[in-house]
C-alpha cells in the first residue's frame, strides 16, 4: 500500500491512490471493494463501466457527470455515449486500459455539445471479479470550463 495523499488535491491521483489501496498485492481490485462512502468527496466525479470487453455499458454515473452531460446517461452502451461530452471523452481510451491492464489517465481540452470549452483530466481504473479478466472499469474525471479568451489548443479527441 502506498502512502496516502495528505495534500494531493488532484482527483486522478487521489482516485489512483484509492485504487492502489483496494488492490493491495493484487493486479486489480475487486469491484465489490469500491465503497462510495470511503470516497464521498470523489464519488460524484466517478462512473463505472460494466463488461468493458464485450459490451461496455455505464452502470453508474456520478451526479457531477449527469449535470455535465445534461441528463442521466446511466445504462447507455459505450457507443451511445456522446463523444463531445466530458463523459464521452473520459471513456474514449477504454481500449488502452483493456490492452495494458493498468490505470490510464488522460487530459485535454475540447468544446462540448453546449459550446463550452472544457479543460479536463480523467482516469480509468481496471477492476476484476475473478482476478483474471477486467470485469468493470472505474472512471473519474473533472474539468474546468474555459473562459472565452482561453484558447482551445487541441480540440481533437
Amino acid at each position: 500500500m502506498t502512502e496516502p495523499h495528505p495534500r494531493e488535491r488532484r482527483l486522478v491521483l487521489r482516485l489512483l491512490d484509492y485504487w492502489r489501496q483496494m488492490a493491495g498485492d493484487c493486479d486489480w481490485p475487486q469491484p465489490e471493494t469500491v465503497d462510495p462512502q470511503a470516497i464521498p468527496d470523489m464519488w460524484t466525479f466517478c462512473f463505472m463501466i460494466d463488461d468493458p470487453k464485450r459490451a461496455p455499458r455505464l452502470s453508474f454515473v456520478g451526479d457531477y457527470h449527469k449535470e455535465m452531460y445534461g441528463g442521466d446517461p446511466t445504462g447507455l452502451a459505450f457507443h451511445e455515449v456522446n463523444k463531445d461530452t466530458l463523459l464521452g471523452r473520459s471513456m474514449s481510451y477504454l481500449g488502452d486500459v483493456l490492452a495494458k491492464g493498468v490505470p490510464v489517465t488522460y487530459g485535454n481540452q475540447f468544446v462540448d455539445l453546449q459550446g463550452r470549452g472544457l479543460l479536463y483530466r480523467s482516469i480509468l481504473l481496471p477492476l476484476s471479479a475473478d482476478g483474471k479478466t477486467i470485469s468493470v472499469v472505474l472512471g473519474g474525471a473533472n474539468c474546468r470550463i474555459l473562459g472565452q479568451d482561453e484558447v482551445i489548443e487541441n480540440p481533437q479527441p
Binding site: 486522478v12 489512483l16 488502452d96 493498468v102 490505470p103 490510464v104 489517465t105 487530459g107
Partner: peptide, 9 residues
C-alpha cells in the same frame, strides 16, 4: 504500473 499523458503527473 500505470500510464499518463502528462510527464509532471
Amino acid at each position: 504500473d500505470s500510464v499518463f499523458d502528462d510527464k509532471e503527473l
